[in-house]
């Protein structure tokens, strides 16, 4: 199945998408703690992520990547500024509304511990749909499972799957509910290069072929090169951007940031 996902050479992707942005952050600031102990994780970030685009967020450790992602996904509250997901402004929403919104519109792939250990792969994949009380679209489910290549692993529990397989299950889960945006925080951080390539190729094809929107945090220039665009963060600010990145271009940019 890897043949389906051989990396497409950078720059040969679809043209700039004309659709309205899926996620917009306006002057988002995030401060942890207060007084002397205050940590300014984000200092006024304004960025928008187009529908049907695959964006990578990069930057040195502690630059605020995860924080930004959490704020965009409605997992964390912002100190100031606004975040809009689709047409909904999520800043100021209560916990319950946010939870329901996440359930319906957002998909996640984390670096590790993506799956509920007591559930089988299939149950994990269907979890968000079940939570939302929706009937899974069987054809779509089969298609996704086929694409991630997990057909014969569906009844296994996470403990019986390899790291790469677990990440692919997480990807499948993020896709099955057809969320507006998928957020991925270092999804390949724990994987060897081959498994990483599988996951990344899969994410990209889901953008190309299924029209998903993906925002991915990564430290790996090769991983970032799968994206349509790279946003660079430093000290809680967006410092630069790169469209149609190549690994080398990304590396140069990182060096320039003094990371």
């Amino acid at each position: 199945m890897t043949s389906t996902f051989t990396p497409v050479p950078p720059g040969s992707g679809a043209g700039a998408p004309p659709a309205p942005p899926a996620v917009v952050a306006t002057e988002v600031a995030k401060v942890y703690g207060s007084g002397d102990a205050a940590v300014h994780a984000l200092r006024g970030v304004s960025v928008s992520f187009a529908k049907g685009a695959f964006t990578a967020i990069m930057g040195p450790s502690g630059s605020g990547k995860s924080t930004l992602m959490h704020c965009l996904a409605g997992l964390d509250t912002v100190t100031s500024g606004r975040v809009t997901l689709g047409e909904v402004e999520i800043t100021g929403l209560g916990d319950r509304r946010l939870t329901l919104l996440r359930r319906e519109r957002v998909g996640f792939v984390f670096q590790a511990f993506n799956l509920v250990p007591t559930l089988t792969a299939e149950q994990n994949i269907l979890l968000p749909l079940e939570l939302a009380g929706k009937k899974p679209d069987r054809d779509w489910f089969d298609q996704v499972v086929e694409v991630v290549g997990l057909r014969d692993r569906l009844s296994h529990r996470p403990a019986e799957l390899s790291g790469g397989q677990q990440q692919r299950v997480a990807c499948a889960r993020a896709l099955v509910s057809r969320p507006e945006v998928i957020f991925a925080d270092e999804p390949t951080g724990n994987l060897d290069s081959r498994s990483g390539a599988e996951v990344l190729g899969f994410l990209r094809s889901s953008v190309r072929e299924m029209g998903r929107t993906i925002v991915m945090v990564t430290h790996d220039p090769v991983a970032a090169s799968y994206a349509d665009r790279v946003v660079f963060l430093r000290d809680g600010r967006i410092v630069s951007e790169l469209a149609r990145p190549t690994p080398d271009a990304v590396l140069d940019q990182l060096k320039a940031l003094g990371g």
Partner: peptide
């Protein structure tokens, strides 16, 4: 803890 957080991220409400 982490499992609960994951479930919360995936859309389980506090009440659930």
């Amino acid at each position: 803890t982490r499992e609960s957080a994951l479930l919360r991220a995936l859309g389980i409400t506090r009440g659930q």
